[in-house]
């Protein structure tokens, strides 16, 4: 008879079955709480970036038809910057707003909204993917970032483009950054229009970044200044963006 090994087996299997619970209960022996382990695991971000660049190159993010758009595009993050200067501008319908383009550029510039809207524009219906898992499809109209950068003229040592924003989280102004590959991608625009209307304030008026092919937290809203830099070390905590510094999201958000 095989009862005895079977009974022993039940114990074995019970232990095997309980193992993941034990693993989780003590967070894989504290590994999940370790900053060193977390940083080591986070290194796969670079692998993902290189592989996805290799596979994708300059490929465009999928674009959709109007009929495929979300009936209601939800908002999240800050929906009204607390900054009084921003609120004053918003009351005047952003008359007097200007976007600074500076840092490592040949010609630091200021663009009024009217000047930006007079430039050749790009309209794209794309999917916005939040890091949390939800998606919404919307229509964005704006000026290609490469055009603004071209007018200012990037210096040879420029490596990244930083976006400074009017909104803040607990007093810290929002900021994000992308590399020059993403900055020069044809779908990377500063949007002033959404769903055939002026960009609403909760979605980042007057200007929000659309860097398709990356997750939602890269799509900086309420952009007031674009800075070209050689390194992200001097920016915030050095990880390249507000959420990257605050809670450790990956700087490269392609997956």
């Amino acid at each position: 008879m095989v009862f005895s090994p079977t009974r022993r087996g039940f114990l074995t299997a019970g232990l095997l079955g309980a193992a993941p619970l034990v693993l989780s209960g003590c967070d894989v022996f504290g590994l999940a709480q370790s900053q060193t382990v977390n940083d080591a695991l986070g290194s796969s971000e670079d692998l993902a970036r290189h592989v996805q660049r290799l596979l994708g190159g300059e490929a465009l993010a999928p674009e959709f038809e109007e009929a495929e758009m979300s009936p209601l595009f939800r908002t999240n993050g800050n929906i009204m910057p607390a900054d009084p200067a921003y609120q004053a501008l918003a009351q005047r319908n952003f008359a007097g707003f200007s976007l600074a383009v500076d840092g490592l550029v040949e010609r630091p510039m200021q663009f009024t909204l009217a000047e930006i809207m007079a430039m050749p524009s790009r309209t794209q219906i794309t999917r916005h993917d939040c890091v949390e898992g939800w998606s919404a499809i919307g229509k964005w109209t704006g000026v290609p970032l490469s055009r603004l950068l071209g007018q200012a003229g990037l210096k040879p040592n420029a490596r990244y483009v930083v976006f400074h924003c009017a909104d803040d989280f607990s007093g810290s102004k929002y900021y994000e950054s992308i590399d020059l590959d993403a900055a020069h991608h044809p779908q990377t625009i500063l949007a002033y229009g959404m769903n055939n209307a002026p960009l609403p304030i909760p979605h980042g008026a007057p200007l929000r970044l659309r860097v398709e092919r990356q997750l939602g937290y890269k799509q900086a809203k309420f952009v007031t200044r674009i800075e070209s830099v050689a390194s992200l070390d001097g920016l915030g905590g050095g990880r390249g963006g507000y959420w990257e510094d605050a809670i450790g999201y990956d700087w490269y958000a392609g997956i």
Partner: peptide, 24 residues
């Protein structure tokens, strides 16, 4: 619940690091 997740207390950034590392 906490006993079914890594890490046991909610942290999306850490969970994504584990998930996207071991995915390879």
């Amino acid at each position: 619940p906490y006993w079914a997740t890594i890490p046991s207390s909610y942290n999306l950034a850490v969970a994504r690091h584990w998930h996207l590392f071991f995915a390879w």
